Computed example of a mutant assay.
Amino acid sequence: MRATITGTTLPVLQIELAAGEKVIAGPDQLSWLMGPVEMNTTTSTAGSSGLWGAVTRAISGGGLFMTEFEARGGAGVVAFAAQIPGTIHEVQVDGGRSYMVHHHGFLCASAGVELGTGVQQSLGAGIFGGEGFVLQKLSGRCTAWVELGGETVIHELQAGQSMLVHPGHIGMFEDSVHFEMTTVRGVKNMMFGGDGLFLARLSGPGKVWLQTLTAPKLAHALAPYMPKAER
């Protein structure tokens, strides 16, 4: 298996599969394919062997169904394009470390990937914290690719070091990083700050990937230029 990421603002991931190799992605991620590549859409993949596992994966944004792309009888190519301007990152998941990924960050992975729901916060703060509440848990033994919006800023947090982040700008972090929602201090900040009532506190040790663009903010910026429905 060989992967190539082409482009800058709207990159595309192309994966060359040798005969018998397989890659797993969401059913709406495929951009194009070449060669004898067969598709199999199923709930029983990405670490899920039953309906409940598929449901928990879907809650985190991974989808109830996943599609397996397998090269049969020869080499093939599968491509996945970014859905918003941003970057695509390759992640080596070795079984001893897992990652928490933002709601729609998982792009695809080789066989051996396990996708689930990573929840590390109390229910009340999670509901009001928006995007920071439900995170995908990426684990297993595989090579995975994650899509982040805009540019990517990486921080290596040391033990005892922490940072406050708007939940939507959290792209991915190692499972050694502690995550919790905190309230914004000050009445004026909460009422007029424009960033909601909650920020996420990320505490080390571990690596954090932050994304500079979120889908809601992109949609908000484009809204004035979209045609209005006639009444």
Rank of each mutant, 00 (worst) to 15 (best):
H103S: 08
A81S: 13
V187S: 11
L164M: 11
P216C: 10
S162F: 09
G50E: 12
Q120I: 03
L210R: 00
H104G: 10
G186E: 06
T41L: 06
Q158S: 15
R2M: 10
G150Y: 04
G130Q: 08
Q136N: 11
F179S: 02
D28E: 15
L64F: 13
R72P: 07
P85D: 01
Q83S: 15
E131T: 06
I127E: 06
H166L: 05
K137P: 01
G7P: 00
F192R: 05
P27A: 12
F69E: 01
V153I: 14
V177Y: 01
Q158W: 14
K188S: 10
P11V: 01
V23M: 02
K217T: 00
V119H: 00
E90V: 14
P11E: 00
F179A: 03
M163Q: 07
T42A: 06
K207H: 07
L157I: 08
A111W: 00
M34I: 04
P85T: 04
I84Q: 10
V91F: 13
S60G: 09
F133G: 01
T183I: 13
C108W: 01
T182F: 08
Q121D: 09
S122V: 12
L222P: 01
Q161F: 11
G140N: 15
E38L: 12
S162I: 05
T143R: 14
I127Q: 11
G63M: 09
F80A: 09
Y99D: 06
E174L: 14
S110G: 11
V184P: 00
I84F: 12
G129D: 03
F65L: 14
G124H: 07
V165G: 05
V187M: 14
G160E: 11
T43I: 11
Q120G: 08
M34V: 06
L51F: 09
G149I: 01
W145A: 03
T152M: 08
G96R: 15
F69K: 03
L213V: 04
P167N: 04
L33K: 13
T214D: 02
T152W: 01
M190N: 03
L115R: 06
A223K: 14
P27L: 14
L164V: 02
A219P: 04
V153K: 13
G53R: 13
